[in-house]
């Protein structure tokens, strides 16, 4: 027995496993290109910028990994983020006359954001599981609803946080400890917890089981509906967390907040090696995927080599390449 398993491991070790290495190689290649193109690429400021701006999509994408692994999909997260940001700003502005500008208002704002995320996620989850509507349709619907709601809340314009409040709340995005800014820390914590939950808990294994075959999972006494609902609730909560980090950056929300975040999050999840049809999820891969997407934009901004009109095309090519690499690896195994 033991010899057989060591043989197996050795054989696998010789073959380059592209499904695992693909995203990492792509990331390394981008870093190399970045270094060659601009000496400032590796500067502390640039690295902090890239990691911090990845945090919003990153935190959301970790939640999205669970939803997709369990065979679901959520198109509403970008609109949801915009709506929650609007709601949070509105609540905080309303509280200021009564409570003054203090930490209490921020705390309530944070609670509002998290609670709103939880509820919004639960609505998506329950509509998918209890009403039995396809996730694509449910979240396409809620996507439109939240986008309209934030436009309506903002009267078509921009909701801005009270100026003094913004100064008080600012450090949550710009501050940090030991030179590492808060959004990076929160993103890292969420990613590590996500990886642990996915790999080492019953919930994570149930997600994969449901995604690969729902009927079999049900016969194996997995509480399919509850687990699926929970993936959406978790995602909603993480959207709330992302908003808590996003609002202090510019202190505003409008109809254009969070535009296309859902597609970036889904793309990051898939680049990272999670199967779009469910059954297998990899949280650390998602993190790599998010970083790849951010780096493409960053590198294109740091050079004049490519016409800015073509940014989208380059992103598209890299997304497809990253996935092709993985699928090839899978097919040859």
């Amino acid at each position: 027995m033991s010899t057989a398993s060591t043989n197996g491991a050795a054989a696998r070790g010789f073959k380059i496993d592209l499904t695992v290495l693909g995203p990492i190689l792509a990331l390394l290649a981008l870093v190399l290109i970045g270094i060659l193109l601009n000496p400032n690429f590796l500067s502390y400021a640039n690295i902090t910028n890239v990691l911090a701006r990845s945090a919003f999509i990153g935190i959301i994408a970790v939640g999205m990994t669970f939803v997709i692994t369990a065979g679901g999909l959520d198109l509403s997260v970008g609109s949801m983020a915009a709506f929650i940001a609007g709601l949070m700003i509105l609540c905080m502005n309303l509280l200021i006359p009564g409570m003054g500008e203090n930490l209490g208002v921020i705390l309530i704002g944070v609670l509002v954001a998290l609670a709103a995320g939880l509820v919004a996620g639960a609505i998506n989850g329950l509509l998918v599981t209890r009403a039995g509507i396809e996730a694509f349709i449910v979240t396409l619907g809620t996507m439109g609803i939240y986008r309209s709601l934030v436009t309506w809340l903002a009267d078509g314009g921009t909701l801005s946080l009270d100026y003094a409040m913004r100064e008080l709340y600012r450090p949550v995005y710009y501050g940090g400890i030991l030179g590492i800014s808060w959004p990076i820390i929160v993103f890292a914590v969420v990613a590590i917890l996500g990886e642990i939950v996915m790999r080492h808990t019953a919930f994570g294994r149930h997600c994969a089981a449901i995604g690969s075959n729902e009927t079999v999972a049900r016969y194996s006494t997995v509480a399919v509906l509850r687990v699926k609902t929970l993936t959406y609730v978790l995602l909603g909560l993480l959207v709330g967390v992302a908003v808590v980090m996003y609002v202090p950056r510019l202190g505003s929300a409008s109809a254009s907040t969070g535009l296309l975040w859902e597609l970036e999050a889904i793309a990051a999840v898939i680049i990272g090696g999670t199967m779009l049809k469910g059954g297998f999820g990899r949280v650390w891969g998602t993190v790599v995927g998010v970083l790849i997407l951010s780096l493409i934009g960053n590198i294109l901004n740091l050079t004049d080599m490519v016409s800015p009109y073509l940014n989208g095309a380059i992103q598209g090519v890299i997304i497809i390449l990253a996935v092709v690499l993985q699928r090839k690896g899978k097919a040859s195994r």
């Binding site: 910028n49 510019l250 934009g297 901004n301 740091l302």
Partner: peptide, 15 residues
């Protein structure tokens, strides 16, 4: 867009 402009400006500043 505010967010896009924020990102592009950050990169200008590093560059």
């Amino acid at each position: 867009n505010r967010d896009d402009a924020f990102t592009v400006m950050q990169d200008y500043l590093s560059r």
